[in-house]
Write a protein that binds this DNA or RNA. Sequence first.
DNA 1: AAGGACGTTCGACATGGTCGAACACAGGGT
DNA 2: ACCCTGTGTTCGACCATGTCGAACGTCCTT
Lengths: 253, 253
Amino acid sequence: MPGTIQSIERAAAMLRLLGSAGRPLALTEIAAPLDLPRPTAHGILRTLRAVGFVDQDRDTARYTLAAALRRLGSEWDRHDLRSRAMNWADSLAGSSGQEVLLGMPAGAVVELVHHVFRPDGSPQRLRTGEQLPLHATAVGRCLLALAPIAVPRPHELDLQRYTGRTVVAVGTLTEHLAAVRHRGWAAELGEHRTGVGGIAAPLRTGGGLVVGVLGVEGPVEELFNGGGTPHPRLVEQLLNAAREISAGLGGSR
Amino acid sequence: MPGTIQSIERAAAMLRLLGSAGRPLALTEIAAPLDLPRPTAHGILRTLRAVGFVDQDRDTARYTLAAALRRLGSEWDRHDLRSRAMNWADSLAGSSGQEVLLGMPAGAVVELVHHVFRPDGSPQRLRTGEQLPLHATAVGRCLLALAPIAVPRPHELDLQRYTGRTVVAVGTLTEHLAAVRHRGWAAELGEHRTGVGGIAAPLRTGGGLVVGVLGVEGPVEELFNGGGTPHPRLVEQLLNAAREISAGLGGSR
DNA sequence: AAGGACGTTCGACATGGTCGAACACAGGGT
DNA sequence: ACCCTGTGTTCGACCATGTCGAACGTCCTT
């Protein structure tokens, strides 16, 4: 049974030490707890600095963990959510007959991290990476209402008009968001693209934190009945998928 | 000028690759882009797995970034906030003449990551690490109102009574939280400890995310006037310090 | 059954990592 | 001003450790 690579183990121990320290550490404060000679510790730190995992303060010569390590984690968050949700998203497109969107908050927009084509073979464009307005889409509304910390507040948004139906009054939008909070899901009828509507439900991790949103999008007349209410079966399918995905993230609805 | 440690550089490159991949990767999918022979790549992965930075799926043998890397980042978040806020917290204790608390959400409580003594030389105990109830303290109220995603909802809390003034009705608490949202800061008069009150303001990162809370605590009669309203100058000092800390976190009020 | 792809182990070997000695610099004390 | 101490960094001898070709075992496809 082959062993492990000592220098890599030492580097990892160093990163853990820096991660759990309450402040930037000096070389001797790193070498001593790890029982390493100073030049050995210095060589490892120099390498970690070169690869961008550790920063060194120019004046004090003290070392801290670098932001690159944090970025490593959040990039993985995005892909982690995608990999955990895509099977359910695919399945939802099949059962609903509509296209399905998986989104995450990204500043003043919602960014699609996964997109499933409407399964009718019609010509479609892959929308992964697309950024949608928060106020005029169901996925965006869902985040505005249920992840208010992760996105700007309604009055901070540039409420641009996309169609004749787009809500651009803060007061009206705020009322809609209150309804979303009450129901637990969001809806939108032709506000972003004429004739196209959507519904959306939040994805939560443990502790209830909303980290993403699952949405169904399609022609208004297929998603909604005459009174502007989505078909109950469709809402049920959406909420069920969102619930399953959330459970897989350590959360629930 | 000495060089860097090759094996550590290779390990870092591997972590970056796994971090930016959209899915778990097989050994060959890791070795090829890095131009490493498979046994070399395997040795590095085996080590990264041993130190807890990489996970390997038992069935598929594919590799992914491990949660330990994410934890490294969030531990640093705690200490990062502390190091960025402590100067302002110290200064606020000096200008207000009261003890100052710096807290972060921690499940169903707010945990103090920094505590500044009341600067009058009276006997005091260091409270760093102490966990305070969300519903009965100003720092907790602030998180309940302004970081609702990071903490449980009011009706999910165990509304324990600490003094005769503690609010233990969900409805009343919810009204208080609405007032906090309206004002942008929280207050508490003798609800956690008899005769002791506090006020608190949120600390935000870029995007408005509330990640912590700054609070002032002291005798009720020193912080509040007869009508139960905090002295305006004290609120101003608190909000100014919170604003400065938030700016340093890439955020604003 | 044969072949190919891939994860993992083995072990020879050479090179890359280690680390004692030395240097440079800063700060404090006399 | 000089000396001492502490600490970050460099140098280079040396050998231990990391590398990697060959081989093995497993799984999948034809």
